[in-house]
Amino acid sequence: MAAIAYFRKIAETEDLVEYQFGDAPDNLERRLTMDKASRTSTVHDAQIDHTFLKASRKLNALRVERGGWPERGMSVS
């Protein structure tokens, strides 16, 4: 069974980046915030589940790979 997380940047400040995310590209109803300094994430609905963890980990990986926070993306496994 495949696990998928889609995400899209909706806001960015000097310290934080906010994303919408979900399990389908037309279902980005949840939000997470990444702290740029610590690269830790917080989910707004307090539901720490597989979709949140996949999105958070992929965002951090892309940040390292590309040198900046991605505008959008997905993680599939």
Rank of each mutant, 00 (worst) to 15 (best):
T33S: 14
F52S: 10
D15H: 14
T13R: 14
M34L: 15
A46M: 05
K36W: 10
V76Y: 01
A61N: 11
A55D: 11
R66T: 12
P70Y: 09
R8W: 01
D49Y: 10
R66A: 07
L59A: 03
K9W: 06
E18Q: 15
H44F: 00
R30F: 06
A3N: 12
T40P: 00
W69M: 03
D15E: 15
H50C: 10
S75L: 04
T13E: 14
V17F: 10
S56Y: 09
R30E: 01
D23S: 05
H50W: 08
I48E: 14
F52E: 09
N60H: 12
G67Y: 04
V64T: 10
M74D: 00
V43M: 06
R30D: 02
A5L: 00
Y19E: 00
R30G: 04
E29W: 04
R39W: 13
A2F: 09
S38K: 14
E12V: 11
V43R: 01
Y6G: 05
F7Y: 14
I4S: 12
R72P: 02
A11T: 15
L16A: 09
R66K: 03
W69V: 06
T40D: 09
F52T: 02
A55V: 14
D26K: 01
D49L: 13
V76L: 09
R8Y: 07
D45I: 06
L16F: 09
R63G: 07
D15F: 08
Y19I: 10
W69F: 11
I4H: 02
A46P: 02
N27T: 08
E12M: 12
P25V: 05
R30T: 00
I10A: 11
S41E: 02
L32S: 13
G67H: 08
Y6L: 12
D23H: 06
L32Y: 10
I48C: 09
A37G: 07
L32I: 12
E65Q: 10
R31D: 06
V64P: 00
L32C: 04
L16Q: 13
T51M: 06
F52Q: 09
I48T: 13
L62Q: 08
I4D: 01
